[in-house]
Amino acid sequence: MDGLTAAETRDLEQRLQKHQMKQFLGLFSNLVDHCFMSCVDDFTSKALSGRETGCVSRCVQKHMALSQRLSERFQEHNAQMSGQAPPGR
């Protein structure tokens, strides 16, 4: 960014990094909760069944793909928006 000193740029980078870490942890938690709620339903045993383990794997895999795809749409949208007037903020 223009007009920031080296110290300010470092400060900004640290804030964004902290933000990204938090964001990652939040996505991780949501994924655990969602895949747990969707896949685990048998409480006759303490250990995950084969079916449950497989379901969790597919759940994670599908959400990675889904998140990737929606990120692309989101970025296209933002690129398009920044070419226009900012949308009603």
Binding site: R58, C59, K62, H63, L70
Partner: peptide, 17 residues
């Protein structure tokens, strides 16, 4: 969150979209 709910069933019979 919104589009996962709308478009992806939560039984996860397959891992690919």
């Amino acid at each position: 969150k919104a589009c996962a709910k709308k478009c992806v069933p939560s039984d996860y019979r397959e891992g690919d979209l």
